[in-house]
Structures are given as structure tokens and as C-alpha cells.
Design a protein around this nucleic acid. Structure first.
Lengths: 248, 248
DNA sequence: TGTTTCAATATGTATATACATAATCGCCAC
DNA sequence: GTGGCGATTATGTATATACATATTGAAACA
């Protein structure tokens, strides 16, 4: 019985082999290295590549199939899938796309950019245990001339150091990060609040007006990457999510 | 009432055993038969119950754990989870569960019940093309003495005729429907609004105060089943949804 | 009384194996 | 050619087995 030995992985944490296969493949797909339609290696090839049994590979691939990332066809192999269906709403949340879907011109404007050593609140928002540098950004998304959403973001520079060199003057950090950091997990919190003075001012609405707040924390391989808070004036925004009963 | 017995399997389709275990348990949890905190049978017990190997049981339970429905603890067993992962929040959205997770006593109170021929608005909300009978319900969910959420619901009686005979005086229609109608699809709309007079009055908050509104339409095999609108006072509620890419 | 140790236990992960099933390829007959 | 048919192939599901690991409860100890 050969135990799963960290053969050529020196950064290897105590991650199960099955997890490693899973995230390797997921990353290839999300990063675009394997485009939709691409045939991923056969089980027996992965078996050889990872030096493990077919069951282990099979479990990982089945999981990817269930998650909708790949499609498996008997006798043909497994293929990267096109759609990104329901979850797209809550996963991507690309404001440019939303705005342009409304037929309005999109624009982003940075309000604030600040590099600092993370304070207690930063660490709590990011879910960091140790202190480290963070980048704080604040910006406005416009739909035409009207403010569409206010964005307040923290980026964990220990996880994404290159972000420290970016200005983010006219591009939002979201799209920038998506192309660079393959995220493995995200958590959303959605709530309603009354606009305070600052928010009302930025969004050009009345103080006290209801706003929809969407907060998202993102992890990449266990490391917190970013925390972002989107604040939408109530009248401008409805989240839509469509589900079929999930099975895991 | 429930036929969890593997012995009398007259309905045996060509479903894999692993799928059957999975859906049996899921149903027990979603229907509330196994409340949050309940310890589900050990792997070796399920092994005996379903006459299969531990691997098969393990695969099913691992999947439920990944989906966030249960939590597994070594040496202790597996337990129905409290904290509502995405599945719980957006799929079932059982307010009783949410309230009890807060450690508060739950109560439901019907405000209105009305059977009528669906008008234009009803049809639009339900997504019905033809006219038919609908049941309109309005009720309040309490957490302790405080109103926790206002529920406004339409049920398509052509799809669920038995609902017409129910009073729904002290039980909300949500749990009732879940046990009866296997839904195949749901769509959520989430937004923020300011409370109007009626809502403010029911929820015992100030008019104009921000509220989180969650609307859900549910289909069962292409037929619209129900449309429900939950209105939460902002301070009482945050939706939480956790994702791995495309939901694993 | 408090702490340390240890065995028991349930889950976590991996193995090798077996057979079923669906899709495809190539061969052969017509 | 072309239509059918079996062999091949990749995945689907299940088995029995093995050992790792975390946690608990109780016994042994200071």
C-alpha cells in the first residue's frame, strides 16, 4: 500500500490527493487554460499522472461533473462545459455586465486607494488571523450618469501582492482579480440597510433610503483574498438567482 | 408515513443506491423530520439498513456534508446543521429553522386566507398563462415576541389542490408544501425596500425603515406551484450564501 | 483534584477489484 | 457503399480492505 507521498510537491500542505486533483483541474478550467469543449485527460491518464487509483480520480471528476464544471461521456471522455448557469448571479457579480445588460454605458471611478497594515476590523472582514498589509479601495460604478453601486473593498496583499502595484483608477478590482486569482470559495452576505450620510452622498440618494448590501469574501486555497461590499440603491437593483435542488 | 425501509422497495427505479441514500436523508432533513442538531445514524448503521458497504454510505454522507446539510465529526457522528449554508438559505428558507437557530421560540400566525380566481397580478406573479384558482395567504413569523418576517403567498390550486382544504392557521405553507410537492426549480429575487404603512404596522417597525425582500417562485415539473414574498426588517436578517466555484 | 495517557470509535482517504452500461469504432456481409 | 454487429473503451457503481486521524471517555497518575 503506497501512501500518498508528496512526490514532487514541496509546498504540499496536508491536502488530500483527491482535493489536489480537484483543485488542479478546477484551476485549469477557471483560468481558461482548458477552454470549454476541451477534453480533459482520461481517468487512466490522471491515474498515471497522480500515481493513484482510478477510484480517487473518479471521485474528483464526478464531483466536478456534479458541480457542472465538466461533462462526462461514456466511451468519449470528460469535457469542459460551457454554461455557468444559475450561480453566475451570485458568483461573478460583474457590475459592468449588469449595467451593460441594461443598455446603459458603464463607467468606474475610484474614490479612494489606501495601502495599510491591516487593523482589527480589516482582519475580521477578511478572516485573517495574522496581521499583514491590505489594500483598501473605494469606488463608484456608474450606469450612464447615475451612480449604480458603491464598492468598498479590501485586498489581502499577502495573498495577492501584485495588487499593491495597481492603481485601479478606472478599472474595478473585481475583474482584475478574477483573471489573476483562481478562487476556490466565496461567501456572500446579503442584507438591507438605510443609507448613512456618506453612502447617500456617494450614491446621490436621500439619507435613510433603503439600500441592498452584498458582501463577499473570497478564498483561494484556504487563503483569504478579498472582502468586498457592494451597496446598491434599492430602486436600482434586484438580485436574481435560479436554482434546481442541489445535490452536493 | 415515510417509507425509508429498504425492504419494501416497490418503487425501485433504476436509481443508484448511493442516490437513494442521499435523497432519503435529504428529505428527512428538509421535511424537518430530523431537526437541526439531530444525530443521523452512524455509517455502520446505515450500512446495515441499506445492506451496502461503508464506502457507499460514506460517499452519500460526504456529499451531504459538502452541500452543507450535515456536519460530520470524528468519533461523534454526523449531525444536521444549524448554520444555513446556501442550500438552506436559498433553497428551503425555512424560517422556523432560522428562528430556532437563534435560540428563540418560533410562532406563526395567519393574518389572511383567501381563495379566489387568479387575477392578472396573481397570474403574473405565479407565471401562469391561463386563469385558475389560487390561494392567497398572509402571515407573520415571530421570533419570541418580535415579528421576524411577514409572508405573502400565492398557491396555484391547479397544481396543489389539497392546499385549498388547509387552513394554515398556525403552520406556514412553506413546510407544508415542501413535504408534499417535490419542487424542481426555484427562482429568487432579492431586493431592499422601504416599509410602507401596512408592512411597518405588521412588523412593528417605522414606516420607511429598510426591509429585505425575498421573493421566490417555485415550479414542479414545469408547473408553477407557489409564489412567496418574505419581508424582513433590515436589522433582523442577513442572508448567507457560500459557494465553491459553480457550487460543489 | 487536576492532568496525562490510552484505548475505543467514527469518520477520512486510499487501495485493488469487479462487473454494468453506454458509446464508438471497425469489421464483415450484403 | 452501407447497414448491422460485436469488440473495445471510458465511465458508473459497488465491493472488501487497510490504515490514518481526530475526538472522546475513562483509567492511571501526580
Amino acid at each position: 500500500m503506497r501512501m500518498a507521498e508528496p512526490t514532487d510537491m514541496e509546498d504540499s500542505e496536508t491536502v488530500s490527493l483527491h482535493q489536489r486533483i480537484l483543485s488542479d483541474i478546477r484551476e485549469k478550467i477557471l483560468s481558461g487554460a482548458w477552454a470549454p469543449g476541451h477534453r480533459i485527460p482520461f481517468e487512466h491518464e490522471l491515474t498515471a499522472e497522480y500515481r493513484c487509483s482510478r477510484m480517487t480520480v473518479n471521485k474528483a471528476l464526478s464531483q466536478l461533473a456534479k458541480a457542472g464544471l465538466i461533462e462526462r461521456r461514456r466511451r468519449s471522455g470528460s469535457f469542459v462545459r460551457q454554461p455557468l448557469s444559475q450561480a453566475a448571479v451570485l458568483e461573478l457579480h460583474d457590475i459592468r455586465v449588469e449595467v451593460e445588460a441594461l443598455g446603459l454605458p458603464y463607467r468606474y471611478e475610484r474614490l479612494e486607494r489606501l495601502k495599510r497594515r491591516g487593523n482589527a476590523e480589516d482582519r475580521s472582514l477578511l478572516g485573517l488571523s495574522a496581521a499583514g498589509s491590505v489594500l483598501r479601495l473605494e469606488g463608484l460604478h456608474f450606469a450612464g450618469e447615475r451612480p449604480f453601486a458603491l464598492e468598498q473593498r479590501l485586498i489581502n496583499l499577502s495573498a495577492v501582492s501584485e495588487a499593491g502595484d495597481e492603481e485601479f483608477l478606472e478599472i474595478a478590482a473585481g475583474p482584475w482579480l478574477i483573471g489573476r486569482v483562481p478562487w476556490s470559495e466565496a461567501e456572500h452576505r446579503i442584507r438591507a440597510v438605510a443609507a448613512d450620510e456618506t453612502v447617500a452622498d456617494a450614491l446621490d440618494i436621500d439619507p435613510g433610503a433603503p439600500c441592498l448590501v452584498v458582501e463577499r469574501r473570497t478564498w483561494s486555497a484556504e487563503h483569504p483574498v478579498t472582502h468586498v461590499r457592494f451597496i446598491y440603491p434599492a430602486e436600482s437593483h434586484t438580485l436574481v438567482a435560479r436554482f434546481t435542488p442541489s445535490q452536493g
